[in-house]
Design a protein around this nucleic acid. Structure first.
Lengths: 97, 97
DNA sequence: TAAACCAGTTTATGTTATAAACCAAATTTA
DNA sequence: TAAATTTGGTTTATAACATAAACTGGTTTA
């Protein structure tokens, strides 16, 4: 049987965000926007959801005088991502896991 | 940059259906329902979408006196599935493809 | 015949993803 | 300095989507 896919991660943009954050120590809003190609509005919403779920930590500060939102993946986020990847592989392998 | 994920395949149930069909010559409605654990209603809708997209071929016949809907993946479906899998791997690898 | 069941479709509903519109502060230009 | 532009986002409105509940048409069983 196919495992349930974490709906929070089974979203193109949120998955992209997690994918980026999985590979770096931290990333600010602008960087994530550039990497994912998302609109700011969409990114803002999806970051919120990931933060609410505890998958990422969001820190609001300033870089110089400009506001700067920094995100980093949490241990819970790493685990959720890993679990999602493992689950997804069951689907991709054509069902013969 | 992250590739766009085919929205038709980026759906838990449709992906499961395609995953099953990728591994067999053909499968009827009941079998797909059992394999995916989906409700009949949901499965019916999603099969329709995959058929409309040309990813699967649907044949309506009878098994004895009972109606029987048989599905099989099309060449276009195989290609779309492969493309989706390749695209998804970019996400799963943490962005460093 | 009536009740239960099978295979599947239609329809209604709540959720979601997404972009458009907006806002405040900082910077640049004239 | 004042106006215009840019930066870094947030809020809000909308359209698409997944899903289950209700339904249909027919069959088997009692």
């Amino acid at each position: 049987m196919f495992p349930k896919l974490d709906p929070l991660l089974h979203s193109e943009l949120r998955l992209a965000v997690m994918s980026v954050l999985a590979g770096v120590e931290s990333a600010d809003f602008t960087f994530l926007k550039a990497q994912t190609g998302a609109t700011a509005g969409n990114l803002s919403v999806q970051i919120d959801k990931l933060a609410t779920a505890g998958y990422i930590a969001v820190e609001k500060g300033y870089k110089g005088k400009m506001p700067c939102t920094t995100c980093r993946i949490t241990p819970a986020g790493v685990e959720a991502f890993d679990t999602y990847v493992a689950a997804l592989k069951e689907y991709l392998s054509g069902g013969q896991a």
